[in-house]
């Protein structure tokens, strides 16, 4: 078990934050904001509450920082908090998913071949998150972390506080639901096929 320089940096940085150094708090925020945002985005998709969620995640990070026992990397620990924030948001939102955000590029305009492909891809991603909206929060988070964020099953299990077996079951359910959604949505099906199929 090697101790990396980054790990030692984290330990010292956390200590400075706990000592009340605002500069250290800013440093921690800037070091980890990209990964927190990426984690939230991949689980939740484009989201008008993203700024609030980022803020909520970091506030929880700072409030809980004393509990970080340095047994895991700080990044993994922060990821866990970000995932928890996303999970709670999904649960709170319940069965009434918000309407998908509309962008200017949704307008129907003549497109070049490349432009049409990009438009199609954006549309497919929105449909993907539409399908995810119909999953349970636990299945959705597991699916997003595994399939979209690219984390191994064991890490997904760790981040979500579930067993590896439970995580595999959630992934299986999520895939089955996505298959069902793709069966009714040719755009989504074509896009998923391009990624190697739904299975």
């Amino acid at each position: 078990m090697a101790v990396s320089a980054a790990y030692i940096d984290d330990v010292v940085l956390v200590d400075r934050v706990l000592g009340g150094e605002q500069a250290a708090a800013r440093d921690l925020f800037r070091r980890h904001r990209a990964r927190v945002h990426a984690s939230l985005f991949r689980v939740l998709g484009s989201n008008r509450d993203m700024d609030d969620l980022m803020q909520e995640a970091f506030l929880q990070v700072f409030q809980s920082l004393r509990a970080w026992r340095a047994e895991a990397s700080l990044a993994t620990w922060i990821d866990r908090i970000a995932v928890r924030v996303a999970f709670r948001w999904l649960r709170k939102r319940g069965a009434t998913p918000p309407a998908l955000e509309l962008h200017d590029d949704d307008a129907i305009v003549p497109l070049s071949h490349g432009g049409a492909r990009r438009q199609l891809a954006r549309d497919a991603v929105r449909r993907l998150y539409g399908a995810l909206d119909r999953m349970s929060p636990a299945a959705r988070v597991a699916f997003a972390l595994y399939e979209i964020d690219g984390r191994p099953v064991a890490e997904v299990a760790e981040l979500t506080g579930a067993t590896v077996t439970a995580t595999k079951v959630r992934l299986w359910r999520a895939r089955r639901q996505l298959d069902a959604a793709a069966a009714e949505d040719p755009v989504l099906r074509e896009w998923l096929d391009g990624a190697g199929g739904a299975r």
């Binding site: 708090a25 800013r26 925020f29 800037r30 904001r33 945002h37 990426a38 985005f41 991949r42 484009s46 993203m50 700024d51 980022m54 803020q55 970091f58 506030l59 700072f62 891809a121 991603v125 993907l128 595994y146 399939e147 979209i148 964020d149 690219g150 984390r151 191994p152 099953v153 895939r175 896009w191 391009g194 990624a195 190697g196 199929g197 739904a198 299975r199």
Partner: peptide
């Protein structure tokens, strides 16, 4: 399905500096 199969196909929207600064100030 393998892990990260969709990773490159779901690009993360960039947060502009103004938004990041606002979030940072809030935190």
């Amino acid at each position: 399905m393998s892990e990260g199969r969709l990773r490159d196909r779901v690009p993360v929207e960039a947060l502009d500096d103004e938004r990041l600064s606002r979030i940072e100030r809030g935190v």
